[in-house]
Design a protein around this nucleic acid. Structure first.
Lengths: 182, 182
DNA sequence: AGTGAAGACTTCAGATCTAAACTTCGAAGC
DNA sequence: GCTTCGAAGTTTAGATCTGAAGTCTTCACT
Protein backbone atom coordinates (compact mmCIF):
# COMPACT_ATOMS: atom_id res chain seq x y z
CA UNK A 1 0.00 0.00 0.00
CA UNK A 2 2.44 2.68 1.06
CA UNK A 3 5.36 1.44 -1.02
CA UNK A 4 7.52 4.29 -2.21
CA UNK A 5 9.77 2.34 -4.51
CA UNK A 6 8.25 -1.11 -4.93
CA UNK A 7 10.58 -4.09 -4.70
CA UNK A 8 13.33 -2.37 -6.67
CA UNK A 9 16.45 -0.84 -5.27
CA UNK A 10 15.90 1.70 -2.52
CA UNK A 11 17.74 4.96 -2.78
CA UNK A 12 20.98 5.28 -0.88
CA UNK A 13 19.28 7.45 1.71
CA UNK A 14 16.39 5.03 2.22
CA UNK A 15 18.79 2.18 2.64
CA UNK A 16 20.89 3.95 5.23
CA UNK A 17 17.79 4.91 7.16
CA UNK A 18 16.67 1.28 7.13
CA UNK A 19 20.03 0.08 8.41
CA UNK A 20 19.91 2.62 11.20
CA UNK A 21 16.54 1.35 12.32
CA UNK A 22 17.90 -2.18 12.58
CA UNK A 23 21.37 -1.41 13.89
CA UNK A 24 21.67 1.58 16.16
CA UNK A 25 25.47 1.66 16.30
CA UNK A 26 25.71 2.49 12.62
CA UNK A 27 27.56 5.65 11.65
CA UNK A 28 25.52 7.10 8.77
CA UNK A 29 28.48 9.00 7.44
CA UNK A 30 30.60 5.88 7.18
CA UNK A 31 27.77 3.86 5.76
CA UNK A 32 27.12 6.47 3.12
CA UNK A 33 30.68 6.29 1.86
CA UNK A 34 30.86 2.53 1.92
CA UNK A 35 27.50 1.99 0.25
CA UNK A 36 28.18 4.59 -2.39
CA UNK A 37 31.52 2.95 -3.16
CA UNK A 38 29.85 -0.41 -3.52
CA UNK A 39 27.02 0.78 -5.71
CA UNK A 40 29.24 2.91 -7.84
CA UNK A 41 31.50 0.00 -8.52
CA UNK A 42 28.64 -2.27 -9.42
CA UNK A 43 27.19 0.19 -11.86
CA UNK A 44 30.55 0.73 -13.44
CA UNK A 45 31.07 -2.98 -13.92
CA UNK A 46 27.70 -3.28 -15.58
CA UNK A 47 28.66 -0.47 -17.92
CA UNK A 48 31.99 -2.09 -18.78
CA UNK A 49 30.19 -5.36 -19.34
CA UNK A 50 27.84 -3.81 -21.86
CA UNK A 51 30.66 -2.15 -23.70
CA UNK A 52 32.75 -5.27 -24.03
CA UNK A 53 29.67 -7.27 -25.00
CA UNK A 54 29.16 -4.82 -27.86
CA UNK A 55 32.64 -5.72 -29.05
CA UNK A 56 31.83 -9.41 -28.97
CA UNK A 57 33.99 -10.32 -26.00
CA UNK A 58 33.03 -11.21 -22.46
CA UNK A 59 34.14 -9.39 -19.38
CA UNK A 60 36.21 -12.44 -18.48
CA UNK A 61 38.03 -12.24 -21.78
CA UNK A 62 38.61 -8.55 -21.42
CA UNK A 63 40.34 -9.16 -18.12
CA UNK A 64 42.78 -11.54 -19.73
CA UNK A 65 43.45 -9.09 -22.53
CA UNK A 66 44.17 -6.37 -19.97
CA UNK A 67 46.60 -8.56 -18.08
CA UNK A 68 48.51 -9.38 -21.24
CA UNK A 69 48.68 -5.80 -22.44
CA UNK A 70 49.79 -4.61 -19.03
CA UNK A 71 52.63 -7.08 -19.11
CA UNK A 72 54.02 -5.04 -22.00
CA UNK A 73 55.47 -6.18 -25.31
CA UNK A 74 55.75 -8.94 -26.44
CA UNK A 75 52.53 -9.52 -24.53
CA UNK A 76 53.28 -12.98 -23.22
CA UNK A 77 52.46 -14.59 -19.91
CA UNK A 78 52.08 -18.04 -18.43
CA UNK A 79 48.53 -19.20 -17.63
CA UNK A 80 49.42 -19.45 -13.97
CA UNK A 81 50.65 -15.88 -13.82
CA UNK A 82 47.50 -14.60 -15.50
CA UNK A 83 45.42 -16.62 -13.07
CA UNK A 84 47.24 -15.16 -10.11
CA UNK A 85 46.88 -11.68 -11.53
CA UNK A 86 43.12 -12.13 -11.98
CA UNK A 87 42.41 -13.92 -8.74
CA UNK A 88 41.40 -17.19 -10.37
CA UNK A 89 42.57 -20.75 -10.04
CA UNK A 90 44.88 -22.16 -12.71
CA UNK A 91 42.10 -24.55 -13.63
CA UNK A 92 39.75 -21.73 -14.56
CA UNK A 93 42.46 -20.14 -16.61
CA UNK A 94 43.01 -23.29 -18.63
CA UNK A 95 39.39 -23.16 -19.75
CA UNK A 96 39.42 -19.42 -20.44
CA UNK A 97 42.48 -19.72 -22.59
CA UNK A 98 40.85 -22.60 -24.45
CA UNK A 99 37.98 -20.34 -25.42
CA UNK A 100 40.16 -17.39 -26.29
CA UNK A 101 42.42 -19.48 -28.50
CA UNK A 102 39.35 -20.67 -30.39
CA UNK A 103 38.29 -17.08 -30.90
CA UNK A 104 41.72 -16.02 -32.07
CA UNK A 105 42.40 -13.57 -29.25
CA UNK A 106 45.51 -15.36 -27.98
CA UNK A 107 47.79 -18.24 -28.91
CA UNK A 108 49.06 -20.97 -26.60
CA UNK A 109 52.26 -22.91 -26.98
CA UNK A 110 54.80 -24.72 -24.86
CA UNK A 111 57.91 -22.88 -23.83
CA UNK A 112 60.72 -24.69 -25.67
CA UNK A 113 63.27 -23.56 -23.08
CA UNK A 114 61.32 -24.99 -20.21
CA UNK A 115 58.81 -27.51 -21.33
CA UNK A 116 56.82 -27.37 -18.11
CA UNK A 117 55.72 -23.88 -18.94
CA UNK A 118 53.13 -22.67 -21.39
CA UNK A 119 53.19 -19.30 -23.09
CA UNK A 120 50.02 -17.39 -23.81
CA UNK A 121 50.56 -14.64 -26.32
CA UNK A 122 48.26 -11.87 -27.45
CA UNK A 123 47.37 -11.93 -31.16
CA UNK A 124 46.98 -8.83 -33.29
CA UNK A 125 43.26 -9.29 -33.12
CA UNK A 126 43.38 -9.56 -29.36
CA UNK A 127 45.36 -6.36 -29.10
CA UNK A 128 42.91 -4.64 -31.39
CA UNK A 129 39.96 -5.72 -29.24
CA UNK A 130 41.70 -4.44 -26.16
CA UNK A 131 42.27 -1.08 -27.81
CA UNK A 132 38.65 -0.73 -28.83
CA UNK A 133 37.44 -1.66 -25.36
CA UNK A 134 39.89 0.79 -23.85
CA UNK A 135 38.59 3.60 -26.02
CA UNK A 136 35.02 2.94 -24.97
CA UNK A 137 36.01 2.65 -21.34
CA UNK A 138 37.92 5.90 -21.32
CA UNK A 139 35.02 7.77 -22.88
CA UNK A 140 32.71 6.34 -20.25
CA UNK A 141 35.10 7.22 -17.43
CA UNK A 142 35.60 10.75 -18.61
CA UNK A 143 31.84 11.14 -18.80
CA UNK A 144 31.41 9.73 -15.33
CA UNK A 145 33.76 12.29 -13.82
CA UNK A 146 32.47 15.14 -15.93
CA UNK A 147 30.89 17.04 -13.03
CA UNK A 148 34.04 17.03 -10.93
CA UNK A 149 36.30 20.05 -10.94
CA UNK A 150 40.05 19.54 -11.37
CA UNK A 151 40.47 20.17 -7.67
CA UNK A 152 37.85 17.62 -6.78
CA UNK A 153 39.42 15.05 -9.05
CA UNK A 154 42.78 15.54 -7.53
CA UNK A 155 41.43 15.32 -3.98
CA UNK A 156 39.33 12.28 -4.76
CA UNK A 157 42.27 10.46 -6.28
CA UNK A 158 44.42 11.24 -3.29
CA UNK A 159 41.84 10.19 -0.72
CA UNK A 160 41.03 6.95 -2.51
CA UNK A 161 44.66 5.94 -2.78
CA UNK A 162 45.06 6.67 0.89
CA UNK A 163 42.18 4.32 1.68
CA UNK A 164 43.62 1.75 -0.67
CA UNK A 165 46.98 1.84 1.06
CA UNK A 166 45.23 1.30 4.34
CA UNK A 167 43.36 -1.78 3.17
CA UNK A 168 46.36 -3.24 1.43
CA UNK A 169 48.48 -2.75 4.47
CA UNK A 170 45.87 -4.39 6.67
CA UNK A 171 45.50 -7.39 4.36
CA UNK A 172 48.80 -9.10 3.56
CA UNK A 173 47.30 -10.46 0.35
CA UNK A 174 47.07 -13.96 1.80
CA UNK A 175 47.70 -16.60 -0.86
CA UNK A 176 48.40 -14.11 -3.58
CA UNK A 177 45.24 -14.88 -5.51
CA UNK A 178 43.40 -11.79 -4.58
CA UNK A 179 43.22 -9.36 -7.37
CA UNK A 180 40.97 -8.82 -10.24
CA UNK A 181 41.91 -6.32 -12.90
CA UNK A 182 41.11 -2.63 -12.93
CA UNK B 1 66.16 -10.51 -13.93
CA UNK B 2 64.93 -6.96 -13.63
CA UNK B 3 61.61 -7.78 -12.05
CA UNK B 4 60.56 -5.22 -9.51
CA UNK B 5 57.42 -6.91 -8.29
CA UNK B 6 57.37 -10.40 -9.74
CA UNK B 7 54.10 -11.63 -11.21
CA UNK B 8 52.02 -10.20 -8.40
CA UNK B 9 49.92 -7.11 -8.52
CA UNK B 10 51.71 -3.98 -9.67
CA UNK B 11 51.21 -0.85 -7.62
CA UNK B 12 48.57 1.57 -8.77
CA UNK B 13 51.26 3.90 -10.08
CA UNK B 14 53.02 1.16 -12.03
CA UNK B 15 49.78 0.08 -13.56
CA UNK B 16 48.82 3.55 -14.68
CA UNK B 17 52.24 4.07 -16.18
CA UNK B 18 51.86 0.81 -18.09
CA UNK B 19 48.46 1.81 -19.42
CA UNK B 20 49.85 5.13 -20.57
CA UNK B 21 52.58 3.39 -22.52
CA UNK B 22 50.01 1.30 -24.36
CA UNK B 23 47.26 3.88 -24.76
CA UNK B 24 48.39 7.47 -25.19
CA UNK B 25 44.97 9.07 -24.86
CA UNK B 26 44.65 7.97 -21.26
CA UNK B 27 44.07 10.64 -18.64
CA UNK B 28 46.18 9.55 -15.65
CA UNK B 29 44.05 11.49 -13.22
CA UNK B 30 40.88 9.75 -14.35
CA UNK B 31 42.55 6.38 -14.45
CA UNK B 32 43.86 6.83 -10.94
CA UNK B 33 40.39 7.43 -9.56
CA UNK B 34 38.78 4.60 -11.48
CA UNK B 35 41.47 2.07 -10.68
CA UNK B 36 41.56 3.01 -7.03
CA UNK B 37 37.79 2.64 -6.83
CA UNK B 38 37.97 -0.77 -8.39
CA UNK B 39 40.80 -2.03 -6.22
CA UNK B 40 39.35 -0.60 -3.08
CA UNK B 41 36.08 -2.32 -3.71
CA UNK B 42 37.73 -5.64 -4.38
CA UNK B 43 39.75 -5.51 -1.22
CA UNK B 44 36.72 -4.61 0.79
CA UNK B 45 34.74 -7.51 -0.63
CA UNK B 46 37.55 -9.87 0.28
CA UNK B 47 37.51 -8.49 3.82
CA UNK B 48 33.74 -8.90 4.10
CA UNK B 49 34.05 -12.42 2.74
CA UNK B 50 36.56 -13.36 5.41
CA UNK B 51 34.42 -11.93 8.15
CA UNK B 52 31.26 -13.73 7.10
CA UNK B 53 33.21 -16.93 6.59
CA UNK B 54 34.33 -16.65 10.21
CA UNK B 55 30.67 -16.61 11.17
CA UNK B 56 30.01 -19.75 9.17
CA UNK B 57 28.00 -18.14 6.41
CA UNK B 58 28.90 -17.43 2.80
CA UNK B 59 28.87 -14.03 1.20
CA UNK B 60 25.90 -15.16 -0.85
CA UNK B 61 23.97 -15.99 2.27
CA UNK B 62 24.88 -12.71 3.87
CA UNK B 63 23.39 -10.87 0.93
CA UNK B 64 20.08 -12.62 1.40
CA UNK B 65 20.12 -11.84 5.11
CA UNK B 66 20.77 -8.19 4.33
CA UNK B 67 17.88 -8.02 1.89
CA UNK B 68 15.49 -9.52 4.42
CA UNK B 69 16.59 -7.26 7.26
CA UNK B 70 16.38 -4.20 5.03
CA UNK B 71 12.80 -5.10 4.19
CA UNK B 72 12.00 -4.44 7.86
CA UNK B 73 9.90 -6.44 10.31
CA UNK B 74 8.48 -9.01 9.95
CA UNK B 75 11.42 -9.77 7.62
CA UNK B 76 9.49 -11.54 4.89
CA UNK B 77 9.98 -11.44 1.15
CA UNK B 78 9.16 -13.54 -1.87
CA UNK B 79 12.04 -15.37 -3.54
CA UNK B 80 11.48 -13.42 -6.72
CA UNK B 81 11.74 -10.10 -4.94
CA UNK B 82 14.94 -11.11 -3.23
CA UNK B 83 16.33 -12.25 -6.55
CA UNK B 84 15.50 -8.94 -8.18
CA UNK B 85 17.03 -7.08 -5.28
CA UNK B 86 20.26 -9.06 -5.53
CA UNK B 87 20.55 -9.12 -9.28
CA UNK B 88 20.08 -12.86 -9.61
CA UNK B 89 17.65 -15.01 -11.54
CA UNK B 90 14.74 -16.60 -9.68
CA UNK B 91 16.29 -19.98 -10.37
CA UNK B 92 19.44 -19.12 -8.48
CA UNK B 93 17.36 -17.88 -5.58
CA UNK B 94 15.48 -21.16 -5.35
CA UNK B 95 18.76 -22.95 -4.72
CA UNK B 96 20.08 -20.39 -2.29
CA UNK B 97 16.93 -20.53 -0.23
CA UNK B 98 17.17 -24.32 -0.24
CA UNK B 99 20.55 -24.12 1.41
CA UNK B 100 19.59 -21.45 3.85
CA UNK B 101 16.51 -23.33 4.97
CA UNK B 102 18.70 -26.35 5.65
CA UNK B 103 20.99 -24.20 7.76
CA UNK B 104 18.12 -22.69 9.69
CA UNK B 105 18.71 -19.10 8.56
CA UNK B 106 15.30 -18.69 6.94
CA UNK B 107 12.01 -20.54 6.57
CA UNK B 108 10.04 -21.05 3.37
CA UNK B 109 6.31 -21.59 3.15
CA UNK B 110 3.49 -21.00 0.70
CA UNK B 111 1.39 -17.91 1.11
CA UNK B 112 -2.03 -19.23 2.16
CA UNK B 113 -3.74 -16.16 0.74
CA UNK B 114 -2.23 -16.63 -2.67
CA UNK B 115 -0.88 -20.08 -3.24
CA UNK B 116 1.27 -19.07 -6.18
CA UNK B 117 3.49 -17.09 -3.89
CA UNK B 118 6.13 -18.28 -1.48
CA UNK B 119 7.18 -16.44 1.65
CA UNK B 120 10.77 -16.49 2.84
CA UNK B 121 11.07 -15.38 6.43
CA UNK B 122 14.14 -14.66 8.51
CA UNK B 123 14.57 -16.89 11.56
CA UNK B 124 15.89 -15.68 14.89
CA UNK B 125 19.17 -17.37 14.11
CA UNK B 126 19.31 -15.66 10.74
CA UNK B 127 18.74 -12.29 12.33
CA UNK B 128 21.44 -13.03 14.87
CA UNK B 129 23.93 -13.91 12.15
CA UNK B 130 23.14 -10.70 10.34
CA UNK B 131 23.73 -8.72 13.49
CA UNK B 132 27.10 -10.33 14.15
CA UNK B 133 28.19 -9.78 10.57
CA UNK B 134 27.05 -6.19 10.77
CA UNK B 135 29.09 -5.59 13.89
CA UNK B 136 32.23 -6.94 12.27
CA UNK B 137 31.59 -4.96 9.11
CA UNK B 138 31.11 -1.71 10.93
CA UNK B 139 34.31 -2.15 12.89
CA UNK B 140 36.16 -2.81 9.66
CA UNK B 141 34.61 0.17 7.95
CA UNK B 142 35.38 2.53 10.78
CA UNK B 143 38.94 1.30 10.74
CA UNK B 144 39.17 1.77 6.99
CA UNK B 145 38.16 5.42 7.23
CA UNK B 146 40.23 6.06 10.32
CA UNK B 147 42.71 8.38 8.62
CA UNK B 148 40.04 10.64 7.15
CA UNK B 149 39.11 13.85 8.91
CA UNK B 150 35.43 14.67 9.43
CA UNK B 151 35.69 17.17 6.61
CA UNK B 152 37.23 14.63 4.30
CA UNK B 153 34.56 12.09 5.13
CA UNK B 154 31.83 14.54 4.42
CA UNK B 155 33.36 15.61 1.13
CA UNK B 156 34.05 12.06 0.05
CA UNK B 157 30.47 11.02 0.76
CA UNK B 158 29.13 13.94 -1.18
CA UNK B 159 31.37 13.43 -4.20
CA UNK B 160 30.67 9.70 -4.37
CA UNK B 161 26.92 10.16 -4.25
CA UNK B 162 27.24 12.72 -6.99
CA UNK B 163 29.06 10.20 -9.15
CA UNK B 164 26.50 7.58 -8.27
CA UNK B 165 23.64 9.80 -9.34
CA UNK B 166 25.37 10.36 -12.62
CA UNK B 167 25.80 6.67 -13.37
CA UNK B 168 22.30 5.80 -12.28
CA UNK B 169 20.88 8.53 -14.41
CA UNK B 170 22.87 7.35 -17.40
CA UNK B 171 21.83 3.73 -16.93
CA UNK B 172 18.04 3.27 -16.72
CA UNK B 173 18.52 0.01 -14.82
CA UNK B 174 17.55 -2.04 -17.87
CA UNK B 175 15.65 -5.15 -16.85
CA UNK B 176 15.62 -4.32 -13.16
CA UNK B 177 17.99 -7.13 -12.24
CA UNK B 178 21.02 -5.01 -11.70
CA UNK B 179 21.76 -4.54 -8.10
CA UNK B 180 23.74 -6.42 -5.59
CA UNK B 181 23.58 -5.48 -1.98
CA UNK B 182 25.75 -2.97 -0.18
C1' DA C 1 73.29 -41.40 -13.93
C1' DG C 2 69.33 -42.28 -10.46
C1' DT C 3 65.96 -40.94 -7.31
C1' DG C 4 62.97 -37.84 -5.00
C1' DA C 5 60.76 -33.40 -4.45
C1' DA C 6 58.76 -29.34 -6.31
C1' DG C 7 56.51 -26.72 -9.90
C1' DA C 8 53.16 -25.85 -13.93
C1' DC C 9 49.49 -27.11 -16.16
C1' DT C 10 45.47 -30.11 -16.99
C1' DT C 11 41.71 -33.12 -15.75
C1' DC C 12 37.86 -34.36 -12.92
C1' DA C 13 34.11 -33.87 -9.62
C1' DG C 14 31.17 -30.77 -7.34
C1' DA C 15 29.09 -26.12 -6.60
C1' DT C 16 26.50 -22.15 -8.30
C1' DC C 17 24.89 -19.35 -11.78
C1' DT C 18 21.93 -18.21 -16.30
C1' DA C 19 18.40 -19.04 -19.76
C1' DA C 20 14.62 -21.46 -21.03
C1' DA C 21 10.98 -24.87 -20.51
C1' DC C 22 7.54 -26.33 -17.32
C1' DT C 23 3.92 -26.38 -13.43
C1' DT C 24 0.63 -24.37 -10.74
C1' DC C 25 -2.44 -20.94 -9.23
C1' DG C 26 -5.33 -16.86 -9.83
C1' DA C 27 -7.88 -13.49 -12.58
C1' DA C 28 -10.51 -11.84 -16.63
C1' DG C 29 -13.71 -12.66 -20.40
C1' DC C 30 -17.31 -15.33 -22.62
C1' DG D 1 -18.93 -22.02 -14.63
C1' DC D 2 -15.23 -22.90 -18.22
C1' DT D 3 -11.27 -21.22 -20.80
C1' DT D 4 -7.36 -18.58 -21.48
C1' DC D 5 -3.74 -15.62 -20.10
C1' DG D 6 -0.34 -14.09 -16.98
C1' DA D 7 2.46 -14.33 -12.80
C1' DA D 8 5.55 -16.96 -9.41
C1' DG D 9 8.46 -20.70 -8.56
C1' DT D 10 10.76 -24.73 -9.78
C1' DT D 11 13.22 -27.80 -12.80
C1' DT D 12 16.57 -28.81 -16.38
C1' DA D 13 20.52 -28.13 -19.45
C1' DG D 14 24.61 -25.81 -20.11
C1' DA D 15 28.40 -22.57 -18.70
C1' DT D 16 32.13 -21.30 -15.54
C1' DC D 17 34.37 -21.52 -11.34
C1' DT D 18 36.89 -23.97 -7.17
C1' DG D 19 39.53 -27.63 -4.97
C1' DA D 20 41.73 -31.83 -5.35
C1' DA D 21 44.03 -35.34 -7.87
C1' DG D 22 46.94 -36.47 -11.79
C1' DT D 23 50.75 -35.86 -15.38
C1' DC D 24 54.81 -34.25 -17.01
C1' DT D 25 59.23 -31.63 -16.54
C1' DT D 26 62.95 -29.81 -14.11
C1' DC D 27 66.13 -29.39 -10.28
C1' DA D 28 68.86 -30.99 -6.40
C1' DC D 29 71.17 -34.40 -4.01
C1' DT D 30 73.71 -38.87 -3.90
Amino acid sequence: MGDTSAAGEPTLEEQIAAYQREFQDLDPQVEKIVSALSRLNRRMNVAYGRQTADLGISNAEWEVLKALVLSGAPYRMGPGDIAKRLGLTPAAMTHRIDRMVTEGLVTRERDENNRVRVIVELTGEGRQKWLEAMRLASVFEEDLLQDLSPDERSTLGEVLTRLLRRVEHAQPDADGRLSDLD
